[in-house]
Structures are given as structure tokens and as C-alpha cells.
Amino acid sequence: MAQSMVKEFTKGLWAEIPPFRLVLGLCPVLAVTKSVENGIGMGIATTFVLVCSNFLVSLLRNIIPTKVRIACFIVIIATFVTVVELMMQAYTYPLFLKLGIFIPLIVVNCIVLGRAEAFAFKNAPHLAIADGLGMGIGFTLSLGALGAVRECLGSGTILGNAVFGPGFQPFTFMVEAPGAFVCLGLMLCLMNLIGKK
């Protein structure tokens, strides 16, 4: 049992790491990765929703009628998203303001619904938690990495600390909208290159 859990957990970290291998849930990936802090904050919020919704969906998988399963998933996911929303407002208000509309939009993040449908609805709760945790952490790492590249080149800082000398001219393109697309495209290309070997 422990072995299969480890397997489900680790696949989210490399073999099926979202959003690179599973090209899903791109909107928050592009929108909030202006800085490492935002990226990781968003990743953690998504992970929480993923784990909770995966667990509950898997627990109820024999009760939920197949015909209305999507509606049930949506209610479950939306509930946890609102929990995260309220929690973030109460404890990390500045981050909540920065992520803004993208917190409630976790509800329509295809990864969360996708995992509920493709995995949690068919597997036991402990596997579903492992899967959610792995996918969530993989997603957080990706967002953090993308945030690091964009923040580093775009504002010359990492987590707000300057990394280059004072003569550095920020490559502002990277923190603007077009830079997000190009940067993600190139990182995807890099993943493909490494994956081929």
C-alpha cells in the first residue's frame, strides 16, 4: 500500500508534472507567476483544494450517482475554494490582494476537476490524497520555477532580493503579459529536450 502511494505521489513531480506534461490549468500559471512569492502562494492554495477535493470525491465515489458526478465535483471543489479564499483573507491578506480573482478561479482550474474525474473517482482515498498532493506539489514547483525565471529577468530580484548588480537593466518584457507566454513556451521546450534523452 505504501509503495503504490509513493508511486502516485511521485508521478505528479516529474512524469506527469502539471502544467508542463499535463497541459492543463494554464491561466493561473501565466497570470500569477510575476514573482516567486505569488507563484508559490497560488500553488499552495491549489494544492490544498486538490488534496481536499480528491479525498472527498474518492470517499464518496460509491455514493455519487455517475450521471450527476460533475455537478457533485463542482460543489465539492467550489466549497474548498471558498474555504481557501476566506482563510487567505484572514491570514495572508496582501497575498490575497495580489492573486485577486485567481483564487476563486481555482474552481475552474482544469487540473482540479481533471484529477477528480480521472483519478479520485476511481481510486481509494489514500491513493487519491497521494495523487492530489503529488500533483499539487508539482504544480507549486512549476509555478515557483516559472516565477523565479520571470522575476529574476523581469525585475532583477528573487523573492524581493536583488540578484544582479546595480547596473542591471530589468528586462520588463518578462513580467508583462507577452513575456508570460514566451517564457512558458520556452520552458516547455526545455522540458521536451530533457525528456527526450
Binding site: P65, V68, A71, V75, T79, T82, L86, M87
Partner: peptide, 23 residues
């Protein structure tokens, strides 16, 4: 179908109201 959806929605509403009051 109706029962499951109703129970789920009630659970969701109740839980959120509780979290809301708490925060």
C-alpha cells in the same frame, strides 16, 4: 441524484457558513 446533490449542497453551505463566522 436529488438526495445526494441536496445533502452535498447543504453540507457545503453549512461548512462555509461556519468558516465564515470563524474568520
Amino acid at each position: 441524484m436529488v438526495v445526494v446533490l441536496t445533502v452535498l449542497s447543504a453540507f457545503s453551505g453549512g461548512m462555509l457558513a461556519a468558516v465564515r463566522t470563524g474568520t
